[in-house]
Design a protein around this nucleic acid. Structure first.
Lengths: 334, 334
DNA sequence: TTGTAGGCGTTATCAG
DNA sequence: CTGATAACGCCTACAA
């Protein structure tokens, strides 16, 4: 009574399973009337073709995987939103995997996808300077992979990033023009693709302005707020920068807390600027100058690239670079 | 050379497919040595059992679906984070569907899940006062469903919510005690489960304090910022409230913009309080008093409830109510 | 402990 | 336009 399958439905209709099957496939030849009769009966009996049987036959899952370092984060949630929308429009389903910035987890997620569960993968990388060879297995399985934002340079697949170097350069220049002489650069992982680009933009902009650059002004931070709070407090008390350039949103947040608590006035005593996808940057106290990445578009484009290779068959290695925008606000006001 | 399946692997090893299969199943009798030989060879040849063939046999997908109204949103991204974590720990995969608050989309997502794609569904509802009968089909398919936060009262499934009525009552009281006489309540959908509870809390708190309650002080808003900006501007100019209680984070945001633009001082001229999962509420200008829902826990608990019914078999109808916390900040300072 | 064989529910191919 | 049949890749009785 409960379990419906194509055979029972066919018997109910005095038809063969092939005919019933045809009613559910878009293309095949079938009499319109029988088709409608079948669909009606199917609805009545609450029948739907079994997904796993279909996929087994057709060897595709109409599903993609998205692997991200974190989820509860403006940037990634917007990006995923973009991915999900494109996937949905293409009739694909979207699986989410969060690594919590744990490289091992990334590896094991990927491992879990070899079995045909998905047709393709979109990923923002977690594993810094590790071995990325496990990703080549994906290619052997003809499973397309697309990177967005955080990429591995040594893996040749389509990538969607933003103009990090240029943005970072301009941002640093912006601080200099606002009068900063002692600009600290806050970074989480300067060996990662993105950290590297952003750090370089900062360094070059300093040089370009004839400001002596010192290694000690590049501050290594973590993902943990408490730790960063300590590091930044020390920074403010010792080096006493008059400018903070946060390469990641959460570092700007920590900086704000530190400055509030230490009674350091923004922007009078220290100007702050950050890469950030915070939609309410202008409501902060004071409004935060940001380099805003087009997070949604980044995701949407990554998805489009994936479907392009999925449909085209050829493994493209397109590199798409979207532009971020520098939005000056009170936190860097002269 | 490329495609591996159990037969080729078996042939390579001079074994039968059943033996190979056994090496991958946890339970079956198999010689430890042959098992290891098989697994080694499998790794070498990059073989993994095809998921769809396995699922077709075993009739379960080890996958759950999460359906939410929106994704790029502090509350939902935290909740999904909680769900994903629990699912991962249970060895399940997580599919994401975003309705953009479109009831029809919710229905069609659900339709798409009848085919065995998932073992269970976790959902925060989009469709207000619509017909929810389509959900009963899920039950016929023995597909467990769990609601979180936004629920349909007429559907009897496990639900995880927060103490919305109580929180709303206390929040209103907080505003009254801070000296507000004319408190407007901003709501997006007062007919929805949550909107209803929150509205009632507001109304009752007013009555409790002997403040005459007027329908006109309940302000109907939308999801769109532009529209809300208009509505709220008008509100501030006409009714001139001295307190705003936003039932949803985005309405507090819009209120801040309006007040900033109109030069209305918070909290001197108007105090603002909001349901919100914003982690940086205290960095806003001024720091925003919030009722903070335990978003992550809401998601994690919903997932746990789902797995409980998935494992236990019995369709529980547990109702879990988590507590939100009122965190007073500058925006409601006396 | 291992092998054989049948079937999970669909769909594509080929006849009719 | 419709029906029979053989895969898809794997798993599990049952037999050896």
């Amino acid at each position: 009574m409960d379990k419906m399958d194509i055979k029972k439905l066919a018997k109910d209709l005095n038809l063969s399973t092939s005919t019933v099957s045809r009613a559910f496939r878009g293309n095949s030849d079938i009499n319109l009337q029988t088709k409608e009769r079948i669909l009606a009966k199917a609805k009545e009996l609450n029948y739907q073709p079994n997904l796993y049987a279909s996929n087994l036959r057709e060897k595709k899952s109409k599903t993609i995987a998205v692997i991200v370092p974190e989820l509860a984060n403006n940037f990634f949630s917007q990006a995923i939103n973009g991915i999900e929308r494109v996937a949905r429009e293409k009739g694909y389903h979207t699986l989410i995997y969060v690594t919590d910035d744990d490289y091992q987890r990334e590896v094991s997620f990927i491992d879990d996808l070899y079995n045909g569960r998905v047709d393709g993968v979109i990923m923002s990388a977690s594993g810094e300077a590790n071995d990325h060879n496990y990703l080549n297995k994906l290619r052997k399985k003809h499973m397309p992979l697309v990177f967005f934002d955080r990429v591995y340079d040594d893996i040749e697949v389509p990538k969607v990033t933003t103009n990090d170097y240029e943005s970072s350069f301009l941002a640093t220049k912006h601080l200099i023009e606002a009068g900063c002489k002692k600009i600290a650069f806050l970074v989480i992982n300067k060996s990662l693709s993105i950290g590297k680009m952003r750090t370089q933009g900062y360094v070059d902009a300093l040089e370009d302005a004839g400001i002596p650059y010192k290694q000690s002004w590049i501050i290594d931070c973590k993902n943990d707020h408490q730790e960063n709070y300590q590091v930044l407090s020390r920074l403010m008390n010792t080096l006493q920068p008059d400018g903070l350039f946060a390469s990641v949103e959460r570092l700007a947040i920590s900086s704000y807390y530190v400055c509030h608590d230490l009674g350091i006035a923004i922007p009078e005593q220290v100007k702050i600027l950050s890469f950030s996808s915070l939609e309410i940057a202008s409501l902060l106290n004071p409004a935060l100058t940001t380099i805003t990445q087009p997070a949604y578009d980044l995701g949407a484009n990554a998805a489009q690239l994936l479907f392009k290779t999925l449909e085209g068959g050829t493994a493209q290695k397109e590199q798409l670079v979207l532009k971020s925008s520098l939005i000056p606000r009170k936190s860097t006001a002269g």
